[in-house]
Design a protein around this nucleic acid. Structure first.
Lengths: 227, 227
DNA sequence: CGAGACTTTGAGGTGACTCAAATACTGTGG
DNA sequence: CCACAGTATTTGAGTCACCTCAAAGTCTCG
């Protein structure tokens, strides 16, 4: 379930892909898999960033908290996504497993050593950081200037784009997670989804509220203004 | 006026600093200065990113627009700040001079060539991108979860930190720019500033609304919650 | 000094939030 | 396989922070 291949999945073969895992380079890095139960923390904000992670299966949320508990989720990490890569010494987000999740992890130091000699890996580090930057820049526009309906539409379109399962969009995260990603409350997210349902733009499947069918991608896209 | 040295000003000597301009490397890159009148565009979103820019004097805003005109400013660039650096082929923001501004510019291709051989420059490219990413991540939290007063307080603290002039904070941008940076309206920004003024946290100087004195940085900081 | 731009302030509106309750779903244990 | 407890979602009603519209005040610069 929730099988997905991120749009970033094939962009960085030099880091977690075949070139490190299956060929000679694999001996240069320590590479492990680790599993986290639903809701558990993978790393905390401001902890030393000694490892870089890749989602093998499951889903992860990265977030920041204000001292009074307000939360802003910066990104969701789905199958094959790489996360926790920092240039500074510490993590700048807390990462938690949204559902039971298996990650592959490697020592950051090892990665840096490889990057020293392997130009491809070094370029991929920059490329990944840029990819994260682009996402954050687009998300600033969403958070600063879009309406609730536009945010939810944009979210569905993003998840649809990152999803491989052609038919149904199976969301691993709850309404509160979506809300904290979009800068809304869970009730507002729910109302927006209901409204899109009423407009025959999406449908809910069978016995779960986490499975969504996009009935009219064109109409949906019309709610997500171009920038 | 508006003389400032960004906190990033001395971080990247390998790109625009002495190492490129005054020593041997300077012959490898084409480096020019160019001036823009207040309000004019330096480059547009989606245009090819052939140049990288550094503010010599003045101030620049980088923003995205929605099709109906809503604007989100992603960053302000002050003296010595580098902007317009892209890894992909196109700019992802429009950049405009806020006041009369002089920039130093260099061909991106030249920079990339230098980066090939000079590890320091390559590392600085990554370092700058990371710096931008960190700013965007923090700004997502502000846009998604902070109140208007917290946003304005955070803005003043950021500008104060980036300012060298110890006493007065001379803002080059108008209320609308601040509003579009903070995801608010200009009236809400004005009301927040008035409120901080009433609380004796800041003062306005003489005959301009752009010069602000931070009377009580401690109290101001208490409005900008930690994350 | 005067025109135009910018800022402040007020009054009223509204989209999203809060609080609350009903409904639906999930996983567990009998 | 069903009942139940706990969690998640939806929906409604009322509130509020911020927005919109409007007008007056302030600043800049020729």
């Amino acid at each position: 379930m929730f099988a997905r291949i991120s749009d970033r999945s094939t962009e960085f073969p030099g880091i977690f892909g075949e070139s490190l895992i299956q060929n000679d380079l694999s001996r240069r890095v320590s590479l492990n898999e680790f599993s986290y139960k639903k809701g558990t923390e993978i790393f905390g904000e401001k902890e030393p960033a000694d490892y870089v992670y890749q989602v093998v299966s499951g889903a992860v949320r990265s977030y920041k908290l204000l001292s009074d508990g307000r939360r802003q989720i910066g990104a969701f990490h789905l199958t094959n996504d790489i996360f926790g890569l920092e240039i500074g010494s510490d993590h700048r987000f807390t990462a938690e497993a949204i559902i039971d999740t298996t990650v592959r992890l490697m020592k950051r130091r090892s990665l840096e050593l490889v990057a020293e000699s392997d130009v491809t890996v070094a370029r991929n580090l920059l490329s990944m950081t840029t990819s994260n930057l682009r996402h954050a820049e687009d998300h600033m526009l969403l958070l600063g200037r879009k309406t609730s309906l536009e945010r939810v539409a944009a979210f569905l379109i993003e998840m649809d784009r990152r999803s491989t399962a052609a038919g149904v969009l199976a969301l691993p995260m709850c309404r509160r997670d979506i809300a904290d990603y979009l800068g809304l409350t869970l009730e507002t997210v729910s109302r927006a989804l209901s409204r899109l349902h009423d407009l025959d733009i999406l449908g809910f499947i069978g016995n779960t509220q986490r499975q969504i069918v996009l009935l009219d991608r064109k109409k949906l896209a019309s709610f997500d203004l171009q920038n």
